[in-house]
Amino acid sequence: MNAFRLAGDMTHLLSVVVLLLKIHTIKSCAGISLKTQELYALVFAARYLDLFIHFISLYNTVMKLVFLASSFSIVWYMRRHKIVRRTYDKDHDTFRHHFLVLPCLALALLINERFTFREVMWAFSIYLEAVAILPQLVLLQRTRNIDNLTGQYVFFLGAYRVLYILNWIYRYFTEPHFVHWISWVAGIVQTLLYADFFYYYIMSWKNNVKLELPA
């Protein structure tokens, strides 16, 4: 594993820690999109189907378990926890996320590395992850007061994607036959979705003003 990949996994983990900190400690999910969180839970469930069948490494297994457990517990907190759920900004989190699922599934049936259940589910999870941030970005645009933890959560998620691209570039030059169009194209699309957010996040940090996205 190269440094970019490890740094990518760590920023991904950090984003989850930041979100859990906000939800578990501050008991607030204000500014967080339940739609995006539900999509992530579905992404991890579909991608990690092989968790107990196909062993890669202890690191891999532990990280998969962490992402599965955290994504489902975040959804549980936002839906069921009696204090946290009251802070959920339901009225502004209106993105029709169900309409992302079917096109991603159709695309996975058409474009996959092998036409097997596991590979189709894997491709589906890659496509769905690429667009899963959309409800969160829409909610941020509608949020007048984006708190620091919410901004940091999305920033770390975006950083994780940038680092994964650097990891692929590194692997392309160091590993023979490392060509993976599905994850690369979907990963680049996913990263581009953060471009606008990154711009305003860095500007707000540079000018030391509160983060706000233009509607």
Binding site: R5, D9, H12, R47, D50, H54, I56, S57, N60, M63, K64, F67, E113, R114, W122, Y164, N167, E175, H177, F178, V179, H180, W181, S183
Partner: peptide
């Protein structure tokens, strides 16, 4: 692309 079978990335 055969090593993708292992899906070693998260």
């Amino acid at each position: 692309s055969s090593n993708q079978r292992d899906h070693d990335e998260l």
